[in-house]
Design a protein around this nucleic acid. Structure first.
Length: 441
RNA sequence: GCGUCGGUGGCAGAGUGGUCAAUUGCAAUUGACUGUAAAUCAAUCGCCCUUCGGGCUACGUAGGUUCGAAUCCUACCCGGCGCA
């Protein structure tokens, strides 16, 4: 992996660059659609590529449980298994420590509504009896599978091993995502754990990197006409769309992934900076910025961290992706974002437009024969009306999810691309202001 | 025509003397969703008054019994089924 910064924001942390992976380039800042279980829900990989995404993210925990990381390895790795020939990122499962642990069954999420810190009731009371599917142990986390109730113990080493089996291009250290509602004592404990886990992740990664070629031997020659035809059609496809960006084809094994360390520290400036210094000092290829945030805390946390992290390495703001947050992150030196919001919102009928989000299932769209978003260039808006989308949702048709997801991902990836171009052209502040003015109505 | 079963809120369908403006599902209306336990979840869903709460009209129609009726009785109207 190689990262080159092409342009920096004047008077700010923002930058535009290119991240080179063995499965192609990522022009940063970039949005990474989430495909947790090795699929961007409701889309075929060609559709994901077509709408402008360069890279996707899959999840270690989910794929470990189903179908199993060894099966994915035996299938030739994620790229081949899911037929995505671009770069892939895998999350370490650290977020599930939070979402299936402290946040389980509670009104806690990646971004909390609570903006007044005084209203944040400490969550870390003795609630060991509270139902949760993840419990933090001595040197790892035990998960109770939401699929069959079986118990699995995930350590940093295990997470890295799973991720090597999956064969992504960028992988993450195992971490603990904490709620901003945790008290200082707990934040310190959790941070110490995340830091220890970071070192262990790194060590395991180095060890496994040596045996990586063994992990993905040349695929056996199945010798079928089918494989040949498949390879041929892939090549044709790429030739037709003018996207022959690399010489390898999708059937070749992946190369050793890049490992990103994750900065935590909750909402405390001291802890955040301490974490950035510590994680930044380790031999990672890039960094993730993690945590659950109150909305107002997000920008300062990102700023604190990015002022400290080594400038020449890429930074990924984990799980963030509403438009205003993306622009904030870009302004403050974030290179990569992933988020389920555009895909999940799409499946639930919420579409992004330059004038804010709309619920396409609302009665007012029943007879709106124009596109969901006037002037949008996505496949959905070019070919279907708001009324049709409204009908598909009301009729509970599967195509509703597909068309809505195409629109939302196109909207978000385009937004980030336009922000990148604005940054390259030296007009990012104007672009941001212009977008937000319309977005907030 | 006779017999029989039944007619409940947009629909389906509970309830069978008071705790019923009426369970539940669907539909409808709106909202939420930020490293995906999520094609999910929540709220509202007779009318009126400003919330607590109160008032009004409602279980085919019209009467009646009763302190009290969606629930019991009578007649009528409508529907299913059976027999003519």
């Amino acid at each position: 992996m190689n990262f080159q910064i092409e342009k920096k924001l004047k008077n700010g942390l923002g930058r535009a660059g290119v991240l080179q992976t063995s499965h192609g380039e990522i022009h940063t800042p970039a949005f990474v659609p989430v495909g947790t279980k090795a699929t961007v829900k409701s889309l075929a990989p060609e559709q994901v590529r077509e709408l402008g995404a360069e890279v996707i993210l899959a999840n270690t925990y989910h794929l470990y449980l189903q179908p199993g990381d060894e099966l994915v390895r035996d299938a030739g790795g994620l790229h081949k298994f899911m037929h995505w020939d671009g770069p892939i990122v895998t999350d370490s499962g650290g977020f599930q420590v939070f979402s299936l642990g402290a946040a389980y069954g509670k009104e806690l999420s990646k971004v909390t509504k609570i903006t007044d810190p005084s209203l944040m009731i400490p969550e870390r009371f003795d609630d060991s009896d509270a139902p949760r599917l993840a419990k933090i142990g001595q040197d790892g986390v035990s998960f109770k599978s939401h699929l069959d109730g079986s118990v699995h113990y995930i350590t940093p080493e295990k997470s890295i091993e799973i991720q090597h089996n999956l064969g992504a291009d960028i992988i993450f250290a195992f971490d603990e995502c904490t709620s901003p509602a945790e008290d200082m004592k707990y934040q310190k404990e959790a941070l110490a754990r995340t830091h220890a886990w970071a070192k262990r992740s790194l060590n395991m990664h180095k060890k496994l990197a040596e045996e990586y070629p063994l992990r993905f031997p040349r695929p056996p020659q199945r010798g079928g006409l089918r494989d040949a035809a498949c390879a041929l059609s892939l090549r044709e496809n790429r030739a037709r769309s003018g996207r022959i960006t690399r010489s390898e084809n999708i059937l070749q094994p992946a190369s050793v992934p890049a490992l990103f360390g994750i900065v935590q520290g909750g909402r405390d400036e001291g802890l955040r900076k301490e974490s950035a210094r510590f994680i930044g000092s380790l031999d990672f290829d890039g960094f993730g910025i993690g945590g659950s945030f109150a909305k107002i805390d997000m920008s300062s946390a990102v700023k604190w961290v990015n002022e400290i992290l080594p400038e020449e390495k890429p930074r990924h703001l984990l799980g963030i992706g509403e438009p205003e947050d993306l622009l904030m992150g870009i302004e403050n030196g974030v290179d990569l974002f992933d988020c389920v919001a555009p895909t999940r919102n799409a499946r639930n009928g919420t579409l992004y437009t330059k004038y804010g989000k709309v619920n396409i299932t609302n009665a007012k769209y029943k007879e709106n024969f124009g596109p969901a978003e006037e002037g949008c260039g996505c496949y959905t808006c070019r070919n279907y009306s708001a009324a049709y989308l409204c009908h598909l949702f009301r009729g509970k048709e599967m195509l509703a999810a597909t068309l809505a997801t195409i629109h939302n991902l196109f909207f978000i990836t385009s937004l980030v691309k336009e922000a990148r171009q604005a940054l390259m052209d030296g007009r990012f502040p104007e672009f941001k202001d212009g977008f937000l003015k319309s977005w907030r109505k």
